[in-house]
Design a protein around this nucleic acid. Structure first.
Length: 264
DNA sequence: TGTGCCCTGGTA
DNA sequence: TACCAGGGCACA
């Protein structure tokens, strides 16, 4: 599942391939794609030059020369693939942008949850988003202040993009393990010291995330799933204290934690 | 605050 | 064959 590091990686690849290029043709291959990008919007994109690609949280925003913005959210399984015209299209292709140099940019998305939407010039507004976790805007004071107003358990609060932008289900569990905080701890009950630990832990797990598509490689060269400390490891031993990792469901999402070294 | 929905590949 | 996973949103 693409989270912030993967989306940033995707943004850089898209910008490298498409900035300065004109969109020659847009093709849609799935009804879900047509729902968000109706034929009129599809046609309006053709012939327009891409000037750059921006990112906030897990949203990529493609800037077009005429002021149009193309909003892209990969959701669960989306990603970019790039080919030249004689090559076969990738599996699960949902949208294809053919550029004026012949490069084909494919939105591949096995579950077809990804959203690509056109915004006419001057109409795009960012949704309410918290600070980017890897910037100086993500301060302990600000984070502590926001959490102090939330009585809900910390794990689902971390998934709220208004609290901190770009943390998803995997890294929320990973960061709480790193910070030794139980996922069911009410957010408002966290002391400043624990909030600081959590902020630092979010930065650690995001910066040590395996870079690439769908975690095809882990930083240590091992299988990608071996990179996670708790995510998906129910029943296995905690790497810190050797207790059994447990899981629970919070707001419909799986959480993984060590019942011994993650305290409420 | 919780639930269901959108989807489909992978697994039990 | 049934069920699960998950981001974000609508809805109760």
């Amino acid at each position: 599942m693409p989270e912030l590091p993967e989306v940033e990686f995707a943004r850089r690849r898209l910008e490298a391939a498409a900035a300065g290029r004109r969109i020659r043709r847009v093709e849609l291959f799935h009804p879900a794609a047509r729902r968000h990008l109706p034929p009129r919007d599809q046609r309006a994109l053709e012939g327009v030059r891409i000037t750059g690609v921006e990112r906030r949280a897990k949203i990529q925003l493609v800037h077009l020369e005429d002021g149009t913005r193309l909003e892209v959210h990969f959701r669960m399984t989306g990603d970019w693939a790039f080919t030249g015209s004689p090559e076969a299209a990738p599996l699960h292709e949902r949208i294809r942008f053919t550029l004026d140099n012949g490069t084909r940019v494919h939105l591949v998305d096995s579950r077809a949850f990804a959203v690509v939407r056109r915004h006419a010039p001057g109409t795009f507004v960012w949704p309410p988003l918290g600070p980017e976790p890897l910037t100086d805007d993500f301060t302990v004071e600000g984070f502590h202040g926001v959490l102090a107003e939330r009585r809900a358990p910390i794990k689902p609060v971390l998934l709220d993009q208004r609290v901190v932008a770009g943390v998803g289900n995997i890294y929320a569990s990973e960061a709480l393990w790193e910070a030794r905080i139980h996922p069911e701890t009410p957010a408002a009950q966290l002391t400043r010291a624990r909030v600081q630990r959590l902020r630092d832990a979010i930065r650690v797990v995001l910066t040590s995330a395996p870079e690439g598509r769908y975690y095809t490689t882990a930083p240590d060269g091992g299988a990608p799933e071996e990179h996670w400390r708790v995510y998906g490891r129910s029943g296995e031993t905690c790497r810190r204290c050797a207790s059994r990792i447990r899981d629970c469901t919070q707001s419909g999402r799986r959480s993984f934690f060590c019942p011994r070294c993650q305290r409420r």
